[in-house]
């Protein structure tokens, strides 16, 4: 079952052209698929395999190795807070606790409304702006409880404003709006 849009297929086609060997495009193509679907589903892996002339087994073997691919569904906003040493000295775990309490979820969980997923992750190369997190793979740095509140509120408001729109659009516009922060 095809799950990727025409737009995604066009982008994939452009990506594949860049490589002398088709399989090389696997990581970037999985990014395209995840960007579109929010996660890398079974159908997505099958379609990617088909596009790159691989077996689905080979795709899952790769997708399951890299931490950025979600092989299970996640929320509209994925909050990934760095917990590695430099961030941990600067209060990363206190921020994780704060998000956890605010959203009522533990790391690894998704809110009941499907809006937020919280993860603890390893170093994201932003040690000088600790504590920090990435939200849908955009960086938000020098975090404080106030900043976290503002981000969560902005996300919830966007959700209300575009309730009729797709999750994908919410995700994108929210990122655009608060991008300057990164």
């Amino acid at each position: 079952m095809a799950v990727l849009s025409v737009d995604a297929l066009e982008r994939i086609d452009t990506i594949v052209q860049k490589y002398p060997v088709k399989r090389s495009a696997l990581l970037p193509v999985l990014h395209v698929a995840q960007n579109e679907l929010g996660w890398v589903s079974r159908e997505a892996m099958e379609e990617v395999a088909d596009l790159l002339e691989l077996d689905p087994d080979q795709v899952e073997e790769v997708a399951s190795f890299y931490t950025m691919y979600y092989t299970d569904p996640v929320g509209t906003y994925v909050l990934e807070v760095c917990k590695t040493a430099p961030c941990s000295f600067m209060g990363a775990h206190e921020i994780i606790d704060y998000i956890s309490e605010t959203l009522g979820i533990q790391p690894g969980e998704t809110t009941a409304d499907g809006m937020f997923t919280l993860f603890r992750v390893e170093c994201l190369a932003a040690c000088h702006r600790a504590p920090m997190m990435q939200v849908n793979h955009r960086y938000y740095q020098d975090l404080t409880p106030e900043k976290v509140d503002a981000l969560i509120t902005a996300a919830q408001q966007l959700q209300l404003q575009t309730a009729a729109g797709s999750g994908f659009q919410i995700r994108k516009s929210w990122s655009e709006e608060v991008k300057t922060e990164g």
Partner: peptide, 27 residues
């Protein structure tokens, strides 16, 4: 010049794992 994004694996900083990853394999 092709800009290629990895997908989350420290090991890919090891140069031969990086090559495997760039070729579309586990790092």
């Amino acid at each position: 010049i092709v800009v290629h994004r990895g997908a989350g694996a420290y090991i890919c900083g090891e140069e031969s794992a990086l090559l495997d990853s760039l070729e579309g394999y586990r790092g």
